[in-house]
Simulated scan of single mutants.
Amino acid sequence: MGHGRDGAAATTLAPAGVEAIARTMHALSTPSRVQLLLRLRVEPRTVGELVEDVGMEQSAVSHQLRVLRHLGLVVGERAGRQIRYRLHDDHVAQLLDEAVFHVEHLTAATPSE
């Protein structure tokens, strides 16, 4: 799962590592950021394409991408006059996959009200 010994996730981290994890999880606490990450999970997109995909204002998409880029979850690559954004790496995709799996697992285990 992680990069610990023998592929096991670390069970302890230095305070700076714990803070970095908390910042990453905080980024995932915003539905608009999750929407953008899930869309980028499919394929790289420009800001304009993401605006159409998720129905947000261009300034809001740009702001959320700036936050995600700062946290190392997405990267932008210039393509002519535009920037195409994509997930930083497969670890971000795995993080999203696990979050989706967890929510689906909870939903299946919880009876409808």
Rank of each mutant, 00 (worst) to 15 (best):
Q58G: 06
P44G: 05
H63M: 08
R86Y: 05
R66M: 08
S32Y: 10
L37E: 06
L106S: 13
Y85S: 00
G48H: 07
H105I: 08
V54L: 04
I21Q: 15
T30H: 09
L37T: 06
R45W: 04
G76Q: 00
R78P: 02
P31R: 01
A14S: 11
A14I: 07
V51F: 01
R45V: 03
A108I: 11
L65V: 03
I83D: 03
P111T: 00
V100F: 07
G72F: 02
A16K: 10
T46P: 02
A108Y: 13
M25Q: 13
R33N: 03
P15Q: 05
A27S: 11
Q58T: 10
A79C: 05
E57K: 07
S32K: 13
D53Q: 05
V42I: 09
E77P: 08
A10F: 11
R23I: 03
S29P: 04
P15L: 05
D6N: 09
Q64H: 12
G17T: 04
H26F: 12
D53V: 01
A9H: 04
V61H: 00
R41D: 13
L68D: 00
R45C: 05
V100P: 09
G17N: 04
L40S: 01
R84G: 01
R69C: 08
L65Y: 01
M1C: 09
A60W: 13
E57H: 06
A79L: 05
E19D: 10
A10P: 06
L73M: 10
S112N: 08
L106C: 13
L13Y: 06
L50N: 00
